[in-house]
Simulated scan of single mutants.
Amino acid sequence: MLSLTLTADLSGVTELRPDDTADNPFWYTFKVQCTSCRENHSNNVSVSRFEQNEMSGSRGEANFVWKCQFCKRESSATIKAAPIAYQQASPPTRQKILEIDCRGLEFTEFHPEGEWLATGLESGTKFTAIDLSEGDWFDYDEKAGDEFMPINPRPMLQNLVNEEVVIRLKWGQTEYKGRLVSIDSYMNIQLSGAEEWIDQEMTSVLGQVLIRCNNVLWIQGANQNNGNGDTKMDG
Rank of each mutant, 00 (worst) to 15 (best):
N40L: 13
H41Y: 15
H41N: 11
H41W: 12
S42I: 06
S42C: 11
N44E: 09
S46V: 08
V47D: 02
V47R: 01
V47Y: 01
S48P: 08
S48N: 04
S48Q: 05
S48R: 00
R49F: 04
R49I: 09
R49D: 02
F50H: 09
F50V: 02
F50R: 02
F50N: 08
E51Q: 11
E51L: 13
E51R: 07
Q52D: 15
Q52W: 15
M55F: 11
S56M: 13
G57K: 08
G57C: 13
G57N: 10
G57F: 05
S58K: 14
R59A: 12
G60L: 06
G60Y: 03
E61G: 00
E61W: 04
E61N: 06
A62D: 05
A62I: 01
A62M: 05
N63R: 06
F64L: 07
F64H: 04
V65P: 00
W66P: 00
K67Q: 14
C68Q: 02
C68R: 02
Q69F: 07
F70Q: 14
F70E: 13
K72L: 15
K72V: 11
K72F: 12
R73C: 10
R73F: 09
E74F: 08
E74W: 03
E74Q: 12
S75C: 14
S76K: 04
S76C: 06
A77L: 01
T78S: 12
T78R: 05
K80C: 14
K80P: 01
A81P: 02
A81S: 14
P83R: 01
I84Y: 02
I84H: 03
A85D: 09
A85G: 03
A85I: 05
Y86C: 05
Q87G: 07
Q87H: 08
Q88D: 09
Q88S: 15
Q88V: 09
A89W: 07
A89K: 14
A89E: 12
S90E: 10
P91S: 07
P91Q: 03
P92M: 09
P92T: 03
T93N: 12
R94C: 11
R94I: 15
R94S: 14
Q95W: 08
Q95G: 06
Q95T: 09
